[in-house]
Design a binder for these strands. Sequence first.
DNA 1: TTGTACGCGTTATCAA
DNA 2: TTGATAACGCGTACAA
Lengths: 340, 340
Amino acid sequence: MSVTIKQISEISGVSRGTVDRVLHGRGRVSPEKEALVRRVAEQLGYKPNLAGKALAARKKSYTIGVLLTAEGVSFFDEVIRGVRQAAGELADYGITVILRTIKGYNSAVQLREMEALRHQVNALILNPINEPEIVAEINALAEDGLPVITLNTDVEESRRLCYIGPDYQKSGEAACGMMGLLLAGRGKIGILTGSVKILGHNQRIAGVRGVIRERLPGLFVGDLDETGDDDIRAYAAASRMLRNHPDLDGLILVAAGSYGVCRAVLELPQERRPKIVAMDCVPTTVEMLRRGVIQATICQQPFTQGYQAVQQAFRYLVQGESPPEERIFMETEIRIRETV
Amino acid sequence: MSVTIKQISEISGVSRGTVDRVLHGRGRVSPEKEALVRRVAEQLGYKPNLAGKALAARKKSYTIGVLLTAEGVSFFDEVIRGVRQAAGELADYGITVILRTIKGYNSAVQLREMEALRHQVNALILNPINEPEIVAEINALAEDGLPVITLNTDVEESRRLCYIGPDYQKSGEAACGMMGLLLAGRGKIGILTGSVKILGHNQRIAGVRGVIRERLPGLFVGDLDETGDDDIRAYAAASRMLRNHPDLDGLILVAAGSYGVCRAVLELPQERRPKIVAMDCVPTTVEMLRRGVIQATICQQPFTQGYQAVQQAFRYLVQGESPPEERIFMETEIRIRETV
DNA sequence: TTGTACGCGTTATCAA
DNA sequence: TTGATAACGCGTACAA
């Protein structure tokens, strides 16, 4: 059984209050006692008891804000489910979670919501739009003592507490490795990305190209286009690509829009359809896996992303523990028809 | 914030002790008060606070026994890591975990250890050997009020609290689906199982055959043999199979022994080697994935198996909650070279 | 049958 | 600067 504050106080002959002040660095303790208590705590290997901490924290009742560009984006459904799950589990610990969703990727809108949440919450979780004003706002909040966690997408050079989300490069590598297996290592592939301006998408493409360079020289990238994460644009881009490259053996989709791509591919006769590796596991992708249009999809635990983000905020607020890593990456999962 | 016993007692005008007796069905309460308290608790949606429960439980200090046939079986390394992780996290809640490992699958040995642990622990987790005397012992323990959780392998007709482990049928389906993708739906495959007497292995084979029947008629099973979960026997069996069927396109390994199989396959010239789909992610399998001998492996979260088993035992003991399902299945994960 | 009081470990407040 | 004390929610022993 582990050591308690009470035991430390008994052994070092001071009161529990004094031990508490030392351990929490609240000051107002004489240097001798401070040193004594520290030594005893160190030697006994004191680790605060979570149940006790949680119970005491109930009096304080923290609020965690979650701000997501989730409206109309079905990928985020699972993320939100994870957020809700964590919120439910932590209600016992006096944690309230406020969830706000916004539509589209307008940084002004996001900025406004951040400002609105600022004074209501003790921690903020968001998927930041990659613009300077958002980074500046994150830093301002952090400066203010409000911990910020970036979820699903990261921004560089910010003072966020940590990032929780996909390892984009690795998911690109997995997609390429899978394509290599589907094509037995040889063939011409096309890449469809969301936007060449989005960091995560570019990292995925870098992952694809890296694997081709290192160990799949029989594959080569014949074309690349943007879908804007939109099924209509994706359909147009894929149609064009298939017309210009009738000999395409595979398509790697590193962003959303897979349904549009599939619709374009379905217009080809069965025997001329390229193999498709997609990203994420939204309902339309599941349908296309079932129909055999998509062969595999790379997932990055959307539920866990939301769940972990809230849990990390809780740990920071209640238990005073910083995240173990600056970036917490999800596992890269490959799903096929039989495992969706 | 959620409802507490104290609030219920205040509202219904009885003491906290009475509320406790009603909620825990300890009897010695007048029918009227009982009904009243129940109604109030129901209406307010009472859910006991976990932190409070945990803190109170610390006085009792439960012990959880874990008994695994893990000696010399590297698959269990991760399971044990999961057990240890949970043990560490639950130390704060007054939980002690005793881990015993045994060598081989001798039911007499397992029985002896079960008897030895019986009086030391408040819950028992084990991977049971599928023999009548083990089933009888599990039932005897359960009769005695000692909750038993089966881990990784289940036994039928037993009074275990729940099963936590792989969905064997599904992992077989995933292996077959993957093989279908590797062979573009056509080819002759061989199956190597551990033993035709082991339920889980047979369920995996059933999964493979099911997928072939339902949607991959171009695949057919040309041969099947046993490895005894042993690399030496696996090598011999695979060598024989490859000799008898030089036209084999794929090998599905539904049990251990993959290293032995790979050694046999490596004796063939590169272009004649069959594709291999294996199970689990032990170090030798990782090596063979890296060398391109194995194309994919199906994993069933060994870490989570161990972690969850201990967590479920904790929930049952401390929080009085039975598992949500009688069988808790792990996710079926496909791993390739890029994602191990 | 019912109520009261204490302890689990932590935090916060108040008095000295 | 220090120590004593109450509170968080739950479980339980003990007294009434």
